[in-house]
Design a binder for these strands. Sequence first.
DNA 1: AAATATAATGCATTATTATGCACGTTTTAA
DNA 2: TTAAAACGTGCATAATAATGCATTATATTT
Lengths: 249, 249
Amino acid sequence: MLKKERHQFIMDKFKDADKVNTIDLALELEISEDTIRRDFNELHNKGLIEKVYGGAFLVKDKSRNIFDINIVNEDKKIIVGQKALSFLREGQVIIMTGGTTNLSFCKLIPIDFSATIYTYSLPIAMQLSQHPNIELIFIGGKLQKNAMVTVGIDVVQVLSKIKADVCFIGVSSLDVNQGLTEMGYEVSIIKKEMINASDKVIVLATSDKINGKMPHKVCGLDRIDAIVTELSPASPRIKNFADAGARLF
Amino acid sequence: MLKKERHQFIMDKFKDADKVNTIDLALELEISEDTIRRDFNELHNKGLIEKVYGGAFLVKDKSRNIFDINIVNEDKKIIVGQKALSFLREGQVIIMTGGTTNLSFCKLIPIDFSATIYTYSLPIAMQLSQHPNIELIFIGGKLQKNAMVTVGIDVVQVLSKIKADVCFIGVSSLDVNQGLTEMGYEVSIIKKEMINASDKVIVLATSDKINGKMPHKVCGLDRIDAIVTELSPASPRIKNFADAGARLF
DNA sequence: AAATATAATGCATTATTATGCACGTTTTAA
DNA sequence: TTAAAACGTGCATAATAATGCATTATATTT
């Protein structure tokens, strides 16, 4: 049986039930659980299934309402967001990048919190618009549709003129040597500018972003004032960061 | 039974009853109360339930998605939008204002339509981001939360520098003598600028906006190239516009 | 066809997650 | 106020997952 067939077989399983079980599948197809897990990983990366401990679920019709954003690993991101709340101060000027981790964070900000927030992310802006006491400045530009953020010279220009107390930054990848790196060139430039404009830099990242490298460097670890993950700061999975002197939360 | 299934099971319980009981649930699923409590905690952290001594309650309707916009008179607005489609040309540079009439219109634009569109409305931008061939430029500024549009000097400045083929403009009010008028001063300034930047001006308005006056004038009827309503151009309710020489559709 | 590279798979080991139990604390209700 | 019930926490155990490595299968090149 070819891998492709197996993937198809797995997806077909969801016609009968809305979950599949790792072990059952391995037994049924007479292959190892490892292979099933690898299949799950690949299907997950294609956004077709959601992995859970013990099996997998089908990702529900995602295009129902274009406005509702599917947040993968939402529970982990909620933990990150809750920790990050301690870095908020009333009256601050804040720069907020995009991404679903930051979106989860924004959902947790107290409804009457008062601050000035700059963002270039459409979903973040939609979310923060619910907060009556937040003065929200949207940084305009050409919309990059996959990330739902604006890019281009206009964005950089606006950023070059402002000064913020703190920047909450979501990441593509975070590596102990390379620091913060991005997949896209344009976004990397913009994030650099955002960091430049901010006194403090707080990185929000779930553990799956950690120990990965992307082509475009944003900044080194030394420029980051806090790294917030869903893990305990003492977790062995981020021990290398602790050893390198990173401030973990 | 996978954890996620159990969570779903618990949430489904609320379809029958207002409250679920820790012990009952443990008995029914034949697992320990500890596990149920842990489930409650996780569901609570996601904001889905409220824990009480002995069980849990569903968190009411709070879950409604802030991103989904309620469009009043949507049927009328769809009629307006469909008529307005005839003013679209491939490759145009378009300025799109905010409002739910324009939003309905944008939902009707063919998915592969190709153009450059400027907007200052968050919901419009979210909607148009679904169109792969539309180059979308968001005009940044301070967000006015009731209308979900950006305002301020930055918006005016961007508009003063661009030149568009056509502007689709939603209105507060439209009067045969006063022309287009707005409730808010800032938006009136911005709309003036949008009209200035555009060769053609298409007004989209449901009939309830017609024959009303607001404090801030945007432009006279003579500057408007087309008025699109859900009514027939021959309708007696807009005869005064026809008599004044307005181009009705 | 043979040789080589590449991908897929299974196995062993280690890490992570889920669950139940014990025990001390908190809450409820009489 | 007190006793019973419910809760939270730490810990032990079992189940599941991830990782590195060896082996086999498949694809590509010569």
